[in-house]
Computed example of a mutant assay.
Amino acid sequence: MIDSDNWSPWSADGKELIDVPPAGKIEDYSEFARETMARYPKVMAHLAGREAANDNCPPVTARGQIISQERLRYLLDYNPDSGVFTWRNPTSRRVKAGRIAGNIDSMGYVQMSLDNRDYRGHRLAWLYVHGYYPENEVDHVNMVRSDNRIENLREATREQNARNRIAYKSSTTGFKGVIRSRDKFSARITVNRKPIHLGQFDTAEEANAAYEAAANRYFGDFARAS
């Protein structure tokens, strides 16, 4: 039989003996649970303390919904100068506050799971700072996918994001938009899904210069020649 006067929800090694859902309300327990818990005043006090401690906790994100800025800022801290997220209020007992959140996925992006949904770090950084989840893509200016400093991020359409890429490894010239044509080098650029021929040149460098000038004219800040 449990001694209700000396009962503690903590074991000798500091581990919690009962598992109370953080968002749960005492009133929501079944009649049997309420009657049972009422026998042990310290249990009830512990539950009330857990509930009071979570009064300022934003609700868990509903299934199918995007996490809110409020909920995100409650769970995580974000350093805009380093681009790193750390746990502020961990959702797992195995994670301590201050620990770096997320990991690098197979594509090179920072990824993390919040409220049973996977997110990429650059999109969360945008939400954390600007207050809204981006409808379009978020481009890494320096093309380093794990560099989530806020100054390295910008909203972009899929087409704009695709422009900020270097030449493919399969390129025989090493320059974006430049192909070898017999003893000449041809430069071309695609704008609004339409290819534009920029001319033929004696060297790959000359063709690349033509492509770079066209990219700056058509693509502005998203232009990248090679």
Rank of each mutant, 00 (worst) to 15 (best):
M1V: 10
M1K: 14
N6P: 12
S11N: 14
L17T: 10
E27M: 12
F32I: 15
A33D: 07
A33W: 12
M37H: 06
A38N: 07
Y40C: 13
K42M: 11
K42Y: 07
M44R: 09
A45R: 06
L47I: 14
R50Y: 05
P58V: 04
P59G: 02
V60T: 13
S68H: 08
R71W: 15
R73H: 10
R73V: 08
R73E: 03
D77L: 09
N79E: 12
P80V: 03
V84R: 04
P90K: 01
V95C: 03
V95R: 13
A101I: 01
G108V: 07
L114T: 03
N116A: 04
Y119T: 07
H122M: 08
L124T: 01
P134F: 08
N136C: 13
E137T: 09
N142L: 01
L153C: 06
R154G: 01
E159I: 15
E159T: 12
Q160D: 12
N161V: 01
A162C: 14
A162Y: 06
T173N: 03
G174I: 04
F175E: 00
G177P: 00
G177V: 00
V178M: 09
S186Y: 04
R188S: 02
R193H: 08
R193T: 05
K194V: 07
P195N: 03
A209V: 00
E212D: 12
E212I: 01
A214R: 01
A214D: 01
N216M: 13
A223K: 01
A225S: 07
